[in-house]
Design a protein around this nucleic acid. Sequence first.
DNA 1: AAGTGGTCTAGACCACTTC
DNA 2: AAGTGGTCTAGACCACTTT
Lengths: 234, 234
Amino acid sequence: MPDYIYKKIADLLRKDILSGKYGSEDIMPSENTLAEEYSTSRVTIRKSFAILAEEGLIKPRHGKGYIVQHPSHTTFELEFSDLETGDARHYHKITIVEPDGDVAVALKDRTKYVVMTRSTIIRNGKAVTCDEKYIPYRRGEPVVEKEINYVEFPDMFAERFPPVSMWVRLEVATSAAPRDVARLLGYAEGQTLMVVRRYIYSGNAECVGYTKRWVGMDYGPIVAKSGYMVNGRL
Amino acid sequence: MPDYIYKKIADLLRKDILSGKYGSEDIMPSENTLAEEYSTSRVTIRKSFAILAEEGLIKPRHGKGYIVQHPSHTTFELEFSDLETGDARHYHKITIVEPDGDVAVALKDRTKYVVMTRSTIIRNGKAVTCDEKYIPYRRGEPVVEKEINYVEFPDMFAERFPPVSMWVRLEVATSAAPRDVARLLGYAEGQTLMVVRRYIYSGNAECVGYTKRWVGMDYGPIVAKSGYMVNGRL
DNA sequence: AAGTGGTCTAGACCACTTC
DNA sequence: AAGTGGTCTAGACCACTTT
């Protein structure tokens, strides 16, 4: 829609890269050359190049020029949130337990007690995941009401930590379902299921939360995407 | 090291956001205000804001101002490549087969024959994954030598498609291991294993390749990361 | 020495939002 | 009408790379 100069030029240059006119390791025309060619200022050309650089198509080299770099497709973007659109969540259990096994390892035995929340995601009337959340227990805090209201993790910790200083490690693996989980999802005990684990770390590298999602066969795969987009479309 | 003005100001503003001085939904001081405050030009302030916007900490609103946005940690970055450092790859089989089952679905029955390559990744003397690759067969092309030499997918297709116009869909799920796979990885037939599938699409949305990785228990989890980085460190 | 990208300035006009 | 971000210009000086 907009006839912005920098955008137009970026589109033209991108096309030249995608079409193969400029191949990998080639050096693009210089900023000054293009500024003159398109009768515009150098700043505008820089803005066009900044777009392509952001997209990973070129890489600037001081004193040399912009070098064409075709992407290698080894980095993927994965979307994963607690709330999936159209799904319902059922809460089954909220208890205070002593951490053991992977929970103790994840939270590094920092606290004697953790709040454990167990819930399932219901899709088409069937439980497709079994989610467990473990949060260090703090004496004197009202537990049940709080935990049940917060579904998204960042909110959960908003009052304890500045949310922006947290980060999450996500793991996907398989594991044998324990009795409770198997029953909720309708499988035999010991059935191998996909498990998504999340470790929530605070800014000072402390693990302040741990979640485990047992994924049923009906849930579908975990999906990630990679590659080069044009106009927001792959 | 560098005492660039725009970087310094970006650091100061970031600190103010992380410390909570500016909370979510707050409006940052205007470009003109900050330009005067720091005795610099508006363009330089814009550059500082551009950094924070790129990091996802603020969002510009035309006519209003820059609005603080604390990240929600639902997007993860996943690294996945054929070559893992320190691992060896053994090739077991290269055949030309008629696609059926998931292979036929993935490649949409576009070709009568596909080249199937089966290999395993060896770690500490043990097969930890079983990888299968399916590529549409083109009559008259030298198959075996080519396929065995190319391990990374982008290279594999470099001569057929401009690599930059490709993208990859990655799926993680579980599935029962067939006989051949189970034998190679040392499990019983039918054992549930984690499976990573990749669909390689060309620019015109055609699926031009399909890979399946059966992941053994010793391989470790698929890992992704999310969160806010400062100075390249989480 | 010449050319490149990297930073920075001091203006200008426009589109959008709020009062 | 006033303030905001969005675009754009025509210069300037610097650091780096190549010749």
